[in-house]
Design a binder for these strands. Structure first.
Length: 554
RNA sequence: GCGCCUGUAGCUCAGUUGGAUAGAGCAACGGACUUCUAAUCCGUAGGCCGGGGGUUCGAAUCCCUCCAGGCGCGCCA
């Protein structure tokens, strides 16, 4: 409907130009929106105010003239009013909104999808936590946002691949191996000093016990140098498997798991550096090899090969993102913890050096999660092993509640996550507010079926019976869903879906208490049943995009 | 010192990419279940949108500046 009015306005505009009433071009930035207040009509446009400057006339004067033309432009425009500084408020024939019911019925679980992504191939890379320990609550937030965002993109017509980048080489890996070996020796009665900088979490004992169970004491007398690769590999494989299990149970699926180690095995890191050398993008200084990042917007140049001959993390990331490009991704969206934000200019500088457009690469930063219990902060420290894992949060508050809490907030704002609040099955918890509406609709339809009222189809209903203002509002809200999804994709803000759903169910619950769906009037009943069925479809689609369940009863 | 993020009701947060009288939920108070699920609804109260300048028809939103909190600023990952 919005789009339709835009077209009518554009048409009217041309008419005015032909008649010499307007001189300027059609401004591209005029808007058509749903006003907050019903007094302001069904749709409003600001075109007169936008035009005021170009035309050098007062906005209200333009509005008077334009509104007169607009009111004649299309039969579905019943009335046009001018208000405030120059808004043109349009009152639209109610039947103009009815076809949304037909569209929802026809598209069903595809309603809300669009081709605004035009099949562009994009990668969402997220979580990508080092396999040195279990996922914690912060990773959970990144997982929920990344997963939901990937679904939003897919729904909005992008060709999406979700990938987890595994940092399985480097110093941290060595530390993991050493820690595991020491715990293993400890289990076999050889307790030695345990360095401060190694991983102290209890999960290391779990890994060590697994080594013992599978290999007995065969490593007890072996020197560290010879068995360290084994311990490192064993521990990271075991922990990665745990991460995969956690993510699966959290409802997060990946299309691929990309190992940093394979970049080295295939010589990709070396190849990238050789190419840079050939193009004069790197130089040697102080015994190290530097990438000329400052030539591409970073604040200084960056080391890619250290004095000791080892490559840096940045070098791997260069090879990794080159690989993404080679795989044909027109869009790369990386989801990082906000503490890595300083790294963005570095990566962007390298992409610019390759001639990649800035729009092709973007980062969604996930801010910190402050974990609370009954309002009191819970101490978190990865190294000491004192942290609350994602698994524990899932077990305690439930998957849906946890995901929804993460997805109702913008990801670039810090988040207080109170375990006691999140676990309450009450009105303090918005996830149940939304799910309850879905269950309630299912319940109504069950009762209707018991009374012999079959599920209605659009052809059999009389949408003209939907005369209540609450019904008109619901139809408008439902019709805005596809634009919301594509807007959410474009703005990279998956939380908009959750906010929208809360608004929708607020309207529904309110409607429910004021109007009965099942009445003595069978035609009316069928019509309202169709309306709530459509609401249910949108709830299902919206919740599916968020990866949150839609229970039939609660 | 420099950079990024945040600052909106007592608390947790939205605010449709500059629009009309700034909205929800919780907490507080008062109401609504013989009728499709009360995990719900209706009402009351609660605000110099951190402060100050600017841009314009119009600013919570954009620019500058200051204040407060968080996070970064490695030949760590």
């Amino acid at each position: 409907m919005k789009e339709l009015l835009r077209e009518i306005i554009a048409r009217t505009f041309e008419q005015c130009r032909i008649e010499g009433l307007l001189r300027s071009e059609l401004p591209p930035d005029f808007t058509v929106e749903l006003p907050r207040s019903r007094q302001h009509g069904d749709l409003a446009t600001n075109i007169a105010m936008v035009l005021a400057k170009q035309e050098q006339r007062p906005p209200r004067e333009i509005a008077e003239m334009f509104a007169g033309k607009l009111s004649q432009a299309d039969p579905c425009i019943l009335k046009v009013e001018i208000a405030g500084p120059g808004f043109i408020n349009c009152f639209i024939d109610a039947c103009a909104w009815h076809d949304v019911l037909e569209r929802i019925e026809a598209q069903a679980d595809r309603y809300g999808s669009s081709d605004s992504g035009q099949g562009r191939k994009v990668m969402v890379e997220f979580v990508s936590a080092n396999p040195t320990g279990p996922l914690h609550i912060g990773h959970g937030r990144g997982a929920a946002v990344g997963d939901a965002f990937a679904r939003v993109l897919a729904f909005a017509g992008y060709d999406v691949t979700r990938e987890y980048y595994i940092n399985d080489v480097g110093n941290q890996m060595n530390n993991l191996g050493r820690a595991t070996r020491l715990r293993y020796l400890e289990l076999h009665g050889c307790k030695g000093a345990f360095p401060e900088d190694l991983y102290r979490g209890d999960y290391i004992y779990d890994v060590a016990r697994l080594v013992s169970a599978q290999h007995g004491d065969r490593f007890v007398h072996e020197r560290e140098e010879s068995c360290l690769p084994f311990f490192t590999r064993f521990a990271s494989d075991t922990i990665l498997q745990g991460i995969k299990d956690d993510l699966r149970d959290f409802g997060v699926e990946f299309d691929s798991w990309f190992s940093e180690r394979t970049l080295f095995e295939r010589g990709e890191v070396q190849k990238a550096l050789d190419d840079f050398r050939a193009e004069g993008l790197v130089y040697e200084q102080d015994g190290a090899l530097w990438f000329a990042a400052s030539r591409f917007g970073d604040e200084k140049d960056r080391v890619v090969v250290k004095e000791d001959g080892k490559t840096t993390y940045f070098a791997s990331d260069i090879a990794y993102h080159r690989d993404k490009l080679r795989r044909g991704f027109a869009g790369m969206i990386d989801i990082w913890g906000a503490d890595h934000h300083g790294y963005i200019p570095r990566l962007r500088s390298f992409l610019r050096a390759l001639g990649v457009a800035d729009e092709a690469f973007s980062v969604i930063l996930i801010q910190m999660v402050n974990l609370l219990r009954a309002g009191v902060p819970v101490a978190m420290s990865t190294r000491s092993g004192e942290f609350v894992t994602l698994r524990e949060v899932m077990d305690e508050v439930g998957r849906d509640a946890a995901r929804f809490s993460f997805l109702t907030r913008r990801s670039d704002a810090q988040l207080d996550f109170d375990l006691d609040v999140a676990k309450k099955q009450s009105d303090e918890n918005p996830v149940y507010y939304v799910q309850y509406a879905h269950a309630r609709i299912c319940s109504i339809l069950r009762v209707a079926e018991e009374k012999g009222l079959a599920a209605p189809v659009f052809a059999d209903i009389d949408a003209g019976l939907l005369t209540a203002p609450e019904e008109a509002d619901l139809l408008k809200q439902l019709s805005g869903f596809p634009a919301l999804v594509s807007g959410s994709a474009r703005a990279r803000e998956p939380h908009r879906i959750a906010v929208y759903l809360m608004e929708l169910v607020g309207q529904f619950h309110s409607y429910y208490t004021k109007h009965r769906v099942i009445t003595d009037d069978e035609r009316l009943s069928r019509t309202r049943m169709h309306l709530i069925t459509c609401i249910r479809t949108v709830l299902r689609n919206g919740l599916a995009v968020l990866g949150v369940g839609a229970p039939d009863r609660m």
